[in-house]
Every structure is written in C-alpha cells, then in structure tokens.
Design a protein around this nucleic acid. Structure first.
Length: 265
DNA sequence: ATGGTAGTAAAACTA
C-alpha cells in the first residue's frame, strides 16, 4: 500500500444517489468512501450494485432517516456499529450514526453527527452528548498515536471561515459555540483537520449548500461541515485534501459534496 | 423574507 485515498459524502439517500456514487467511484477510485444519511433500512440497502462495481460495503441504517455505510476496495476488519457505552443505547438507536472498521491498518470512524434542530431543543443537548460520548469512545478504545481517521457529516463548522455568514449564523446549531466546544474537545484528544491542514486560511471552501436557498452555490451560501480529521501520525502522512466541487455536476446532486484526502502509507 | 427544496413513504417528519 502506498497511496490511501479516503472520501466522505452525505448522500441524502443512497438509493436516490446510487448512480452519482457509482460514477464517482469509477472516476476517483477511492480506497474508502464513507457515506452518511443513507436513509435505508439494512434489508433494502443496495449492496449488490456496489459489490458489482468491485467494492465491499458495510452499512447500518433505519427507515427514512440517518444511516451510515462504508464502501471499500479491500475487505473491512474489526467492524463495529454504534456506541458500546451504557448511555441511551439500550435499543441500539445510535447505531445508524456511527460505523467503524479497519482498512490497511487504518481505523476509519464514520459519523453522522446529530444535527440538533434548535439550540433550545432537547435535540441540541443530544447532539452535545453524542459528541462527548464519541470523545469517550475514542479515549476508551484508541490512542492519539494510532493511525485513525474520523470522517463524516459532523454537523459543525469549526471556524468563522467555514460558514458564509459567521455573524448571522452565530447561534445556529451547526455553528453554535457549544457545538464548536464539543468538537474542539474531540480535536484536542488528538486530531488534525486534514482539509484545513492543506488549505490554511482559505475561505469559501464549503462542503454543504442548503437546497432551500436561492442559487446557494452561485451566491456562496455554504458551510464546511463534512470533515476528514486524522490523528497526528496519520496526518503527517497526508499528501493532499480537497472538496470535490466537480461532483456537483451530477444529474441529481446531494446538497453535500465529496470531501477527499490522500495519505502515503 | 422564519420562507425555501429534497427525500422517505404515504401524512408528516427530517434536514
């Protein structure tokens, strides 16, 4: 193994975005693609066309909402879905947001972080707890010295340059100081934002554009909430990272796009 | 402008 290429994509339904994903795999040939918001229960997951395209796939989903999957050229090892803590997880309700496995000796953690809806809501408190539980999971199972990458729709824009209007969005759940603090606590465990490492200070680098705005892409109404974060030893091996704006030219694109990083292993 | 669109799944919820 020399070049290890990993990408993340919030599909907003993997079934409605299957052609776009298969085209993208054919063009980009990533080793690993992490998908969020698959919006499909496991019995209806479209594994066959993905496997026919030469990719392994693991997934955990539920009807209509959330759901995660990892597509890969090599077989996954040590697959775990969901948290293994005692909190709020008796019914496995958190599993469709968290899936991890090992590829080429690199632990890949794929997350669909809860969005949070409104800052005053219980949903936002759940988001903050979810991030704290993930930090505890990392603490429990891994070391910052491991080769580990955390990717996904993290539903938090870390810095002012990561949103189109930092003043106007100050208390939005994806840009809220409490959400940023929860993300920062995970960063301090031992992560490097690999995209930002290779694009320091670059504004207007967004991975998500709200469908509901008028011409959001043309007007730059975007957010950088889809991330690839690596532990320090893995980040030291990173060679480049980018947001695939070309992928938006698909016939029916998601409101998110692909974020990609490469590592020399 | 507190709207707007897209998806699931079959009316209302989620983002």
């Amino acid at each position: 193994m020399s070049n290890f290429k990993i990408a993340t994509f919030n599909a907003n339904s993997i079934r409605s975005r299957l052609d776009q994903i298969l085209d993208w795999l054919d063009r980009e040939q990533p080793d690993v693609l992490c998908v969020q918001e698959t919006k499909v229960q496991d019995k209806d997951f479209p594994a066959q066309p993905i496997e026919e395209a030469g990719y392994h796939v693991i997934f955990r989903g539920q009807k209509a909402y959330s759901g995660v999957a990892i597509l890969s050229q090599t077989a996954p090892a040590d697959i775990v879905a969901g948290f293994d803590d005692e909190a709020e997880n008796d019914d496995g309700a958190d599993a469709p947001r968290l899936l991890r496995a090992v590829y080429h000796g690199v632990t890949v953690v794929n997350s669909y972080v809860p969005q949070g809806r409104e800052p005053e809501s219980e949903h936002f408190q759940y988001k903050l707890r979810w991030l704290a539980r993930l930090r505890a999971l990392l603490e429990r199972h891994y070391s910052p010295d491991d080769l580990l990458v955390w990717v996904g729709d993290l539903n938090v824009a870390p810095e002012d340059i990561d949103v189109y209007d930092p003043k106007g969005l100050r208390y939005h759940v994806d840009f809220h100081p409490d959400a940023q603090a929860a993300l920062e606590a995970i960063r301090q465990w031992g992560f490097v934002d690999v995209f930002r490492l290779h694009h320091p200070g670059e504004p207007q680098q967004f991975s998500y554009f709200d469908y509901r705005a008028n011409n959001p892409i043309e007007r730059g109404i975007g957010w950088r909430i889809d991330h690839i974060w690596a532990t320090a030893p893995l980040a030291a091996k990173s060679t480049r990272a980018w947001i695939d704006v070309e992928a938006r030219k698909a016939a029916r694109p998601s409101d998110h796009t692909f974020v990609v990083a490469e590592f020399g292993l």
